[in-house]
Design a binder for these strands. Sequence first.
DNA 1: TACATACAC
DNA 2: TATGGTGTATGTA
Length: 367
Amino acid sequence: MSPFLLVGMDGVDKEKVQRIVYEMSKGSKYFENEERKEAFIRQKIEHMRARCAKLSATDISHYQKVADKRVAELEARRDLSRTWLHVDMDAFYAAVETLSNPSLKGKPMAVGSMSMISTANYEARKYGVRAAMPGFIARKLCPELIFVPVDFEKYNHYSSLTRKVFQRYDPDFIAASLDEAYLDITEVCRERDLSSDEVVQLLIFFIAKVADELRRSVFEETGLTCSAGVAPNRLLAKVCSDINKPNGQFVLPNDRMAVMTFISSLPIRKVGGIGKVTEHILRDVFGISTCEEMLQKGGCLCALFSRSSADFFLSVGLGLGRTDASQVRVRKSMSNERTFSATEDEVLLYQKLGNWRLSYQNSRIIP
DNA sequence: TACATACAC
DNA sequence: TATGGTGTATGTA
Ligand SMILES: Nc1ccn([C@H]2C[C@H](O)[C@@H](COP(=O)(O)OP(=O)(O)OP(=O)(O)O)O2)c(=O)n1
Ligand SMILES: [Mg+2]
Ligand SMILES: [Mg+2]
Ligand SMILES: [Mg+2]
């Protein structure tokens, strides 16, 4: 199975991409390890299917009641009163590199090295080139691909320019990474409320204007494009910002019906926190691939998963997400790691450790 | 507490 | 020739 997300990019020859990634990977230590991990996951899936099959009729009705109760509790706490905007820069590192070297415009380009690519511009993505793909495979997919080395100082600089714009809309915005942020624009939109159909339409129009203006400001201040999603909570806003990427936006109104319709056909993988493994498990054990199906299979989920996992899945099925104000997050760790080629040479290993200590003993890293 | 896994950018 | 680095959350024992 390909480690790269192949959905979402139309016009890519997925078969060919998969074949080339496989051809280039097979036989490598990396590949063998991936296969080992996949075998574990298949085992875990088998185990869960067995547990599922062993549930008695009374078990099933019990867990269905548990699920119904939790769904009711979650539903009761639904908050449609806030408006969140998620903004995410388009092909961020690559776009910054194109600003400093405009001759790259229109050409397939990746930021990174032959070993690893941090991101690729949209021209390169047409060939199936992706973030977290080794450069030598990317070059097979797209022989004319241009490589640009990473330059974090530059990305930090442009990140802070974008944040100056975000601040004007929400001084307490949440920076999720260098290239994205969550803004509570409830107050910006406060101008009107109430909910006759006409007013709702007007409000959506007004929100779209706010998002559009924000994106124009970012472009004017930085020369970079971004995409935005607006929704009643952060989880949905993040999903929405991806819908019309790049250089686009999508507004999901603060309306329960609109949210349920939106969520019904949404593939679970689109949701933040659901990745390759969870997608695989939920599909192969429960036949779940859309958010709606999380609710339908709520009983089984409550029977087989921990409280916190089951609650998360159910809340995704309801289209719920966090709406609370940001709290100051305290750093919990600081780390520094490097991958080196496999060796059993003890002398070499101790030498590496020694160099490490010499480099970092005075850096006063306090977690 | 220590360790492994999953996830995100 | 070659498959990253940093940080968070959660489950298990
Ligand atoms: N596995 C990854 C993913 C991303 N990044 C870096 C490079 C990206 O430019 C930046 C932002 O990540 P995004 O997921 O937002 O991707 P992009 O901004 O590059 O593209 P998109 O237009 O899809 O947002 O983080 C990285 O180093 N490694
Ligand atoms: Mg981005
Ligand atoms: Mg991003
Ligand atoms: Mg996901």
